[in-house]
Amino acid sequence: MAQDMEITVNGMMETVPRDSTLDSLIVLFEEEHPELIAELNGRFVHRQDYAATKVGPGDRVEFINAAFGG
């Protein structure tokens, strides 16, 4: 049974599994969409690196929508 940890997602405190990756959080928070920009502790993370990017206690994750209207 994985333990939980607290992190911040889009400015809100959230309790998530301790073994979370950016990829698993995207599934958990239903952020799988093509215009997603993901950020860990203020740093942009490449899409191909989501699965390998581990998230730890106290980390700050941001999910942002790139937009394509004009």
Binding site: H33, P34, E35, F44, R47, Q48, N65, A66, A67, F68, G69, G70
Partner: peptide, 25 residues
């Protein structure tokens, strides 16, 4: 370089779904 994969429509966050606040553009 920033976004290698071209986002395909329909997008989750778009003018069709979220409109546009006039001062934004």
């Amino acid at each position: 370089c920033w976004a290698p994969e071209e986002p395909r429509e329909p997008l989750k966050h778009s003018v069709a779904t979220h409109g546009v606040l006039g001062p934004l553009p």
